[in-house]
């Protein structure tokens, strides 16, 4: 399988609507700079999660293109998408864990399936992630047997398993305590500093995560993504303009 590096990401004339009266994006053009954490912002029901799903390739736009590395991502077949999907980590707002597998088996699934590492290497990698996210005690249980917070953490942890270059997190702080949010924030910052994660899109209202991580607010407004730089200290160092 050919390995890809996710570089430029953008929308070109992209349209998406739930129905006639509820347009999410309309002829939207947008280019995402590298090494940026962008938060999708807007009123409830404006389509933030839908945009994240478009970015993850889970749903297709109605018109226009979602472009990665100059190629229309939404026009690729399932097989063509696989190398890109291996570089995308997605944390669901709720659900997303395979219920008949334990948390550990959930985390190791993509590595085992795509044979990305040998068994020992995979085990060490997963152990490290389990340690970072504090999932040691719940790793042997199925999702239905652990708390909502643990499920949420496991789902976010799985987004990091394949060392993604594009990280997409839908409300990652729901049900998490301050310590877990701080851990997550630090882990994302570390991954970005080490050059593994290149783009982060998230939806959150958590002030701690916004202050510590988010550089750009993308406001969903009238079918467009209005780009708004935040003045917090950002992960790439220094302050944004």
């Amino acid at each position: 399988m050919t390995e890809v590096n996710i570089g430029s990401i953008g929308f070109s004339g992209l349209d998406f609507s739930f129905d006639e009266d509820h347009k999410v994006l309309s002829k939207c053009d947008f280019q995402m700079p590298m090494n940026t954490v962008a938060r999708l912002n807007g009123p409830h029901g404006c389509g933030k999660s839908t945009i994240l799903k478009i970015l993850a390739g889970m749903i297709e736009p109605m018109r226009g293109d979602y472009i990665i590395n100059g190629k229309p991502f939404n026009q690729m077949s399932f097989e063509e998408l696989i190398p890109y999907r291996l570089k995308i980590g997605y944390g669901f707002e709720y659900g997303g864990l395979i219920n008949n597998r334990t948390i550990y088996q959930n985390l190791i699934l993509p590595i085992q399936y795509h044979k990305l590492m040998d068994e020992d290497e995979a085990k060490n990698h997963i152990d490290e992630i389990i340690e970072v996210f504090g999932l040691r005690r719940s790793s042997g249980y199925r999702p239905s047997s652990v708390s909502g917070g643990q499920r949420k953490l496991a789902c976010i942890a799985r987004a990091f398993v394949m060392n993604p270059q594009l990280l997409i997190l839908d409300e990652p702080t729901h049900g998490l305590n301050e310590k877990s949010v701080e851990n997550l924030s630090n882990y994302i910052r570390d991954k970005m500093k080490s050059g593994i994660v290149k783009h982060v899109f998230l939806t959150t209202e958590n002030p701690m995560l916004i202050e510590s991580l988010v550089k750009k607010d993308l406001i969903v407004q009238d079918g467009k993504l209005v780009d708004f730089d935040l003045l917090y200290e950002n992960v790439a160092g220094g302050k944004a303009s």
């Binding site: 696989i82 997303g96 395979i98 219920n99 699934l109 993509p110 795509h114 799985r158």
Partner: peptide, 16 residues
């Protein structure tokens, strides 16, 4: 139920 719990979407996004 897998559809409801977004397990199918999760598989797709992992390239499965």
């Amino acid at each position: 139920n897998m559809r409801v719990n977004k397990e199918i979407e999760a598989l797709e996004v992992m390239g499965i």
